[in-house]
Amino acid sequence: MAAGEKTRVNEKTPEGATNPPGYRAIPIKFTQDQASCHFLYVKQHRVRGGAKSGWPSDRTLFVLNVPPYCSEGCLAQLFSACGPVQSVSLHEKPDLSEMPKTTSSEFFSPKSVPGFQVAYVVFRKPASVPKAVALPGPLIASTESHPVKTGIEKWIADYADSLVDPEALRVEVDKFMEEYDKKAAEEDAKAEAEEGVPDEEGWVKVTRKGRRPGLPRSEAASLRVLEKEKRKKARKELLNFYAWQHRETKMEHLAQLRKKFEEDKQRIALMRAQRKFRPY
């Protein structure tokens, strides 16, 4: 290491956790009787200069290493001692978009993969953020007043949440289809308005809707079309695929020729008997 070069040393909490640069570790336990602690890494939410964010920087606490058993309600309860919490949002990774991602549907929203997540805790007052960063801990996730469901109770609750109300689902689907039909009608109207109108370069957009509609078919015309399709389908079928089918076809054809020859001989003999045979 060159002389005079400074290294950045991570701070350590009294509990032995290492703070990443810019973050503070807050110990958390699932229950009061738990011996070991889990650590949440928190800091005030800030964005780089020129970047936009939907989270208010002066009232938002950014939390890393959120365990799977900490839900949004659990985090709101943990940080409620610092001040009233406006909202809590969990994400699989830091949300770098301008606005927080919100799903308009409770039935068709993608389910998050359970695991460690990050959280954005928005307080109602800016003074609550420094208090949350300075929390001594350890925080207790599951208490008697606000227990966190585990085991079979959690499975039963998850199963109950997975059941969908058919009436609410029908209302949402009908609403979605109405919006879709309205959007499709607007697009069709826009396409009809633009059809036949040249653009800036002089090109004219031609669509299938611009074709002249054909006349309705009569019953006889429909039957002719069906017969034509039937003949076309029959031609496509593989006839006499095997060698024995070829032999049987030739034998049947030869038998028909012999039968026809005998019938012609009898007809000629009958005509001779009636003296109506005039070869010349």
Rank of each mutant, 00 (worst) to 15 (best):
Glu5Arg: 12
Lys6Glu: 05
Gly16Asp: 10
Ala17Ile: 01
Thr18Lys: 12
Asn19Arg: 04
Gly22Asn: 00
Pro27Arg: 10
Ile28Glu: 05
Lys29Leu: 10
Asp33Trp: 04
His38Phe: 08
Lys43Pro: 08
Gln44Leu: 00
Ala51Arg: 14
Ala51Ile: 02
Ser53His: 04
Gly54Ala: 08
Asp58Val: 04
Arg59Lys: 11
Pro67Arg: 08
Tyr69Gln: 01
Tyr69Trp: 03
Cys70Gln: 01
Glu72Trp: 00
Pro84Val: 09
His91Asn: 01
Lys93Pro: 04
Pro94Phe: 00
Pro94Ala: 02
Leu96Val: 04
Glu98Ser: 06
Thr102Phe: 00
Lys111Trp: 04
Val118Thr: 06
Ala132His: 04
Pro136Lys: 09
Ser142Gln: 12
Thr143Gly: 07
Glu144Leu: 12
Ala160Leu: 13
Val164Arg: 14
Pro166Asp: 15
Lys175Gly: 15
Glu178Asn: 11
Asp181Ala: 14
Lys183Ser: 15
Glu194Lys: 13
Glu194Val: 09
Gly202Gln: 02
Lys205Leu: 14
Lys205His: 12
Val206Asn: 08
Thr207Cys: 11
Lys209Ser: 11
Gly210Ser: 11
Gly214Cys: 00
Val225Pro: 01
Glu227Cys: 13
Arg231Thr: 07
Lys236Gly: 13
Leu238Arg: 14
Gln245Phe: 03
Glu262Thr: 09
Lys276Ser: 00
